[in-house]
Design a protein around this nucleic acid. Structure first.
Lengths: 249, 249
DNA sequence: GCGATAGTTGCAAGATTTGCAACGGACGGG
DNA sequence: CCCGTCCGTTGCAAATCTTGCAACTATCGC
């Protein structure tokens, strides 16, 4: 609706990938260099962009605002200490995803102790059919909401184990409800697997999920399964902090 | 330079504080509601804003971009695992600040185990005269850069212990260089104190600092001092990961 | 010293944004 | 039940604000 703002946002997207020169920005937007300059300058004066050796990148105001935004989410503040404790315990990567309106978003990540770090996901929407947290939330959603999700779901294949069949996916969701937890058996990336457990609010509705993720080489599913009691306990603790009465779902 | 973009950024700032209705936005910007609507819609379609029960807030694209930006910083990725380990050890809050151009910015925070969480600072510029990390970096900066910092420094008082005298501040910096670490004795907030140690790069220049922060009631300075060997070790490890030869400064 | 690339500025043209007025829906009090 | 208010939304004409141009400067590398 506003061309100018659209261009400014596009510029921020460009900066997020990697630092860009004014020329690159202008070329990408298809505008004159002077136009690009004025947009970038505006971003810079607002702290949304900053120069870095002959190029521009995302500015710190942006970082600060985003951080503030995450802290405003209901789940993050109550869950965080629990997640840190959980991360401590096994040294694996811990993710928290929250159900926000009609999408599921990664809200917190606690890095594991290994040298490798998972490609980061905070702020990104969860892919429901290839992630533990996605399946955990989806499975425990109430009927109409789940159907709304499923309706707009596509099933692109990422690995051999990716579930690409809607019917099989529904079966998987049913299984998850039954046992109370979900897993990702290398369905997004071959060498990564995880287990995930849902989090409940005061009214007994799913609000998100917590997952323990690890390289298969480091901790295969069987090993992660051993952490399920701890993970379930953590999610119960978070849920109780949210006012959950504590009944089994 | 671009009024429209300026307004869009202003809107994001508003959303960061708390969710806003269109009317509030329009009022704050001093524009017609329809104008505000079109700007907000543009932000929303870009994922930079999102509706939340009758109001608008910061969108997740914003969060994702900011996160990506932080990961691009040189210090963050190498330092993070060390910080987590340090946080584990004592359960106190750990901050990492990085020197970026002519400012020092909080880049990472590892929350402590206590129920209380520090008011968050990631992405925010460090106040050099009231923070451990600020003083640690400033003290070890090369002469000209330090003078440039000092030149534009004001010394607003926040607490009884805030250093408000430029001369006293220089003396403090000298003391910090001598002993190799800095402290914040409730200089920003009465009840919070911290110790901080600088981080070096391959060429032996300060690139940032790490601090261990705690409520005074929980861990007074004397207690934090006991953690200095560990903190110094962590900073040395980070510095070595950055290519620091390992000579004492 | 030449050529390339980066950033910057004034100005005129006009595309883009703006304010207006009016509509529909939701909510709450009277 | 109706009125008042506050929400978001749309079409349109006016004009503000943005845009592209062209020219200038600076820096880097050959």
């Amino acid at each position: 609706m506003s061309q100018t703002v659209e261009r400014a946002l596009r510029i921020l997207e460009l900066f997020a990938e990697r630092p860009r020169s004014l020329g690159e920005v202008a070329a990408d937007l298809g505008v004159h260099r002077s136009t690009a300059l004025r947009l970038v300058q505006t971003l810079e004066r607002g702290g949304f962009a900053r120069p870095v050796d002959g190029r521009y990148t995302v500015g710190f105001r942006m970082v600060a605002i985003a951080h503030q935004a995450v802290e405003q989410l209901d789940l993050h503040p109550v869950a965080h200490p629990h997640l840190v404790r959980l991360g401590d315990r096994y040294g694996h990567t811990v993710h928290l995803a929250q159900l926000v309106d009609d999408e599921i978003v990664y809200v917190t990540k606690v890095d594991g102790r290994g040298a490798l770090r998972m490609r980061s996901r905070v702020g990104q929407p969860v892919d429901p059919h290839t992630s533990g947290v996605g399946k955990a939330v989806l499975a425990h959603l109430d009927q109409p909401a789940r159907e709304r999700f499923l309706a707009r779901l596509t099933y692109p294949r990422h690995t051999d184990t990716t579930i690409t069949d809607p019917v099989a996916f529904r079966a998987e969701l049913a299984r998850i409800v039954e046992r109370g937890w979900a897993e990702d058996d290398g369905e997004f990336e071959d060498f990564v697997n995880c287990v995930a457990v849902p989090v409940w609010d005061a009214r007994g509705r799913v609000v998100g999920a917590v997952s323990i993720t690890a390289l298969r080489a480091l901790a295969p599913l069987e090993r992660l399964h051993e952490h399920l009691p701890e993970l379930t306990g953590t999610c119960a603790a978070i849920s109780r902090d949210l006012g959950w009465p504590g009944d089994p779902p």
